[in-house]
């Protein structure tokens, strides 16, 4: 295995470990010497102005983008730069996209079925039969995401907020160790935002979560450690109060 810079035993190491990561697109440095550690069971909020590299960071973690340099380790020993998206998803990293991406021509229930943890081989899918456990799991997630009544509706017919929740439900169905949630409350009403915060806090009880969000009220609602990204690296880290008082943060948010 690869030589580690972090502590010796795998379970003592941070769940996610990014060190000195850089990536540029056509000369533009989207991520610049970024280092970030996420402990097991931690929920972290990532804030930052547009173009700070938040989504690119998620692309790197999920294998969509390969960094030019730097280390990305998951669960202590897994070098994420060496794997592609499906492999990383099977290691236990789930991702919710900025624009809700659900399978529109499938029902809500089938969307969850597709996401449900289990075999991912072609023949396994062909001969798959819905077990009682799987059916119960789906019902439970429908309950958690308040989508039970829309169970047999096409995902295309859901409202924007409900699509966001369905995607969070799909994340839950995958049962990953780490959830990456990109702007979960974009375009939501205040009531929906509150509901989403409640949902995420519930999820964070037994999962590690990274939430990227612009909405400061929502971040305050979550009440977790915040990292502020700017020009591809971490500008400030700590509680929301600490970060929002940081003069450099004020500078990048208000200075332009």
């Amino acid at each position: 295995m690869n030589v580690q810079a972090s502590p010796d035993r795998a379970e003592d190491r941070p769940l996610l470990y990014l060190n000195g990561v850089s990536v540029s697109f056509d000369g533009f440095r989207a991520i610049n010497n970024l280092s970030l550690y996420l402990e097991r069971g931690e929920m972290r909020a990532i804030i930052g102005p547009n173009g700070a590299g938040k989504t690119t960071m998620m692309d790197i973690i999920t294998g969509k983008t390969r960094p030019d340099s730097g280390e990305v380790f998951f669960d202590g020993t897994i070098d994420l730069t060496q794997h592609d998206e499906p492999a990383i998803a099977t290691f236990g990293i789930g991702r919710k996209f900025q624009k809700p991406t659900v399978f529109e021509s499938h029902t809500v229930e089938d969307n969850l079925l597709m996401a449900l943890q289990g075999g991912r081989g072609v023949l396994g899918q062909l001969f798959y039969r819905l077990s009682r456990d799987d059916a119960a799991k789906i019902s439970e997630i429908l309950e958690t995401t308040r989508l039970s009544a829309r169970r047999n509706d096409l995902a295309a017919n859901l409202s924007h907020g409900q699509k966001q929740w369905l995607e969070i439900g799909m994340l839950l169905a995958q049962n990953p160790k780490l959830l990456l949630v990109d702007e979960p409350v974009a375009g939501m009403t205040d009531a929906e935002t509150e509901e989403t915060a409640r949902l995420l806090k519930e999820i964070a009880q037994d999962h590690s979560v990274i939430v990227v969000e612009h909405d400061m009220h929502f971040v305050r609602e979550l009440g977790v450690k915040v990292s502020c990204l700017h020009e591809g690296s971490v500008l400030s880290e700590g509680s929301l109060d600490h970060v929002s008082k940081d003069p450099r943060v004020i500078e990048v948010y208000l200075g332009r």
Binding site: P86, T101, H106
Partner: peptide, 18 residues
Amino acid sequence: KLMIAVRDAESRTRFLGY
């Protein structure tokens, strides 16, 4: 169902591990 999912949102299926 997975085939239809691939037809409609191929990259999304990758992030589910398919």
